[in-house]
Amino acid sequence: GLLPLSLEAIEQAIRLNGAAVDNNLRAFELGRWAVLHPQDAAAVITPNVVELPKSLEDRIAFRVAHLTDYQGTRLVRRYTKLLDRIEDRGVKEAAALGYHKLLSYKDEYEVARLLLKSREKAKAEFEGDFGMKFHLAPPMLTGKGPDGRPKKREFGSWLERPLRMLTKLKRLRGTPFDPFGYSAERKMERALIKQYEADMAEVQPKLDAGTRDAVIALAELPLQIRGFGPVKEANEAKAAKRREELLAVIRAGGAPMAKAAE
């Protein structure tokens, strides 16, 4: 380099300093590599920024693409059919988010798809032999922990083949042939979709300046139903209470939002 010191002398100085020796030696090696291979170094440190959709139309298109991967065009038609009936842009934006959240509940088929997608991304970043372990909590295999939540266990790369088979069976989702569709959580998720569609149909004729805030809050309410298992059940119970409050406001013709939360 430009310093009149040998490589061995610099490394010895780092060791004698005694502070984070391994990390500093590694940083020194990386610095030398970056000088010798500036283009490769630039590619490594350049942030991989994903630009999120900004306009309402872009946000809807983004979710249409996701629903296509999630299930297919039939679910997309269901999604866009409801949105096409909404003229108010604020309500439509809230519904675009809330309705999508309900339609794309994360079941076994979606977990399999996302795990395989993550695997492909990780494999592209590494060279040589590649293996991946999965940490999952199948209710039928792991049981529940002291906190009432399903316990996670580790699965090896052998799970990839069953996961691929599972993704091909996603068309069974929501049908009588869906083996996972009979659990209490899946039944709740399907019921929430139908309830949401009925609510949106009811409140649209009541939309005016006095009810608009409550309608928007109702349309985006599904975003509050997060998590899995007991966590999701608890959030759904809170959302159900809030739903009744908002519907009462809308049916009353637009009572103050503060009263709806009392």
Rank of each mutant, 00 (worst) to 15 (best):
Y105F: 14
E127H: 12
E108S: 09
E87Y: 14
A124H: 10
A122R: 14
V111M: 13
A95Y: 06
V91M: 06
V91F: 12
L82D: 02
R113C: 02
G128Q: 09
A124D: 03
A122K: 14
Y105I: 03
E127N: 09
L83M: 05
T80D: 03
E127I: 00
D107G: 12
Y79K: 04
K92W: 11
A95V: 02
A94D: 11
G90W: 11
H100N: 03
K117V: 08
V76K: 04
K101A: 00
A112N: 06
K92I: 13
A96K: 04
D88L: 08
E87R: 15
H100C: 00
V76F: 05
R74P: 00
H100K: 05
K106H: 13
Y109R: 04
E127C: 00
A95E: 04
R77D: 07
T73Q: 12
K121A: 11
Y109G: 02
K117L: 10
R74C: 07
D84G: 13
D107C: 04
D88M: 05
E125P: 02
E87Q: 11
K121L: 09
A94H: 09
G98P: 05
L83A: 09
Y79Q: 01
G90S: 07
L115W: 04
G98T: 10
H100M: 00
Y79V: 00
E120Q: 11
L115I: 01
L82R: 12
Y105V: 03
L97S: 05
K123P: 01
Y99I: 00
R78M: 06
G128W: 10
L114C: 08
G98N: 09
R89E: 15
K92H: 11
F126H: 15
K81R: 13
Y109Q: 05
V111K: 15
Y109N: 05
V111R: 15
A95N: 03
K123Y: 06
A124V: 07
G98H: 11
R77Y: 11
L75T: 15
G90K: 01
L116K: 05
L116A: 08
L103C: 04
K101I: 01
E120C: 10
V91L: 12
L116E: 01
A124T: 07
A95M: 06
